[in-house]
């Protein structure tokens, strides 16, 4: 009796859940259908999606017309290189913070003292800048010096914090809205930021990072670095320090401790982090839309080209979209848990 009732209940829940799941998935499903229809049929999809003929021509046309594979290549290069570069920074950092944490600030100054120091440096910077008419166009060295004057006390403050505060500060850099950084980055990318064309007689007029991998890869790396460090840190934290100490007692040097003991235990965490970072950078769509248009343009830029009225081909849009999302969606399915952990900075596991 009880068993039958729960069977009925289970069936009901199953039905509801599948229905809602399908509603959520529907736009993707629909894109998948439209991708295999002719352009004309794509516009009457709701009535004819089962009856109209299926075709593969869209995929061929997308590739032929716009060199689709080039965009796949660009996306992959940016995602993979930025991830590897990010890991090169993040693995040592996460190791240091997880296993050699600093529990106290290395310089003991009160918050008020720091605020005064920062304020003083800002005021000096502003005063010097104003005294030359706020124009660094003619004097790049002065401009760089002023950036250093502005930045060094901030960097010093960060550097002397204990590990927990350093982590929070890293997180806070992720909160910098791209709108705030857009103008400086845009100008750094195409005209040196300080808007000068000559430096000590060297012509820098050709300086350009816009639409290049040299610009996009480090940028993407920096965008995701806080998440990567946090995620690795939470994984490293779960490895008992005693095991590394045991290796030391067993006569392992630093390199052996890292390669023979830590690395094998850290591999799953590093792999998850890598996966999440690839997903994030694959789907990034602020900087790619603003800073690329051809040579280093990834798929998100490519798809956005379909927004113009003359680009309105639904079947081809669907085919291109399907190809752009399929690989990352599959990766995503396998990394659900890591995703939760990475995007909540370890607050939910």
């Amino acid at each position: 009796m009880a068993r039958r009732e729960s069977l009925a209940k289970k069936s009901a829940w199953t039905l509801v859940a599948w229905a809602i799941g399908f509603v959520m998935f529907f736009p993707i499903f629909w894109t998948g259908i439209a991708a295999f229809k002719s352009e004309a049929d794509a516009y009457s999809l709701p009535r004819t999606w089962l009856t109209s003929p299926w075709t593969l021509e869209n995929f061929a046309i997308v590739q032929a017309r716009s060199n689709y594979l080039q965009y796949v290549f660009n996306t992959t290069v940016i995602a993979v290189l930025s991830t590897l570069l990010g890991l090169a920074f993040a693995i040592p950092a996460a190791w240091g913070m997880a296993f050699q944490p600093e529990t106290k600030p290395s310089v003991n100054l009160s918050g008020k003292a720091w605020a005064l120091i920062l304020l003083f440096f800002f005021a000096v910077t502003a005063a010097i800048a104003l005294s030359v008419g706020w124009r660094m166009t003619d004097n790049p060295l002065l401009g760089l010096a002023l950036i250093l004057l502005f930045g060094l006390p901030i960097a010093a403050w960060v550097w002397t914090r204990r590990t927990g505060d350093k982590l929070l500060w890293m997180l806070s850099t992720k909160m910098m809205p791209p709108a705030g950084a857009l103008i400086p980055i845009y100008l750094i990318f195409n005209r040196n930021g300080l808007v000068f064309r000559q430096w000590g007689g060297v012509d820098l007029g050709d300086w350009n990072l816009i639409d290049t991998f040299a610009g996009m890869v480090p940028l993407m790396m920096l965008l995701n670095l806080p998440i990567v460090i946090w995620m690795l840190y939470t994984y490293f934290k779960e490895i008992p320090f005693e095991i590394l100490e045991a290796a030391r007692m067993d006569g392992a040097g630093l390199w052996q401790e890292l390669s023979k003991v830590l690395a094998p235990m850290a591999v799953p965490g590093i792999a998850s982090t890598l996966l999440l970072n690839v997903i994030l950078s694959w789907n990034e769509a602020f900087w790619t839309l603003n800073l690329t248009n051809k040579n280093a343009a990834p798929l998100s830029f490519f798809i956005s080209e379909y927004s113009s009225p003359e680009g309105q081909f639904w079947a081809k849009l669907s085919a291109a979209s399907l190809m752009a999302i399929a690989p990352i969606m599959v990766l995503g399915w396998f990394s659900q848990r890591q995703l939760v952990r990475g995007l909540t900075f370890g607050a939910v596991k």
Partner: peptide, 17 residues
């Protein structure tokens, strides 16, 4: 520690998993 020639048994055993 690696050059002191001592061996240690830890509370958590610290075996390499």
């Amino acid at each position: 520690p690696s050059e002191r020639g001592l061996a240690m048994v830890f509370q958590s055993y610290a075996l390499y998993p």
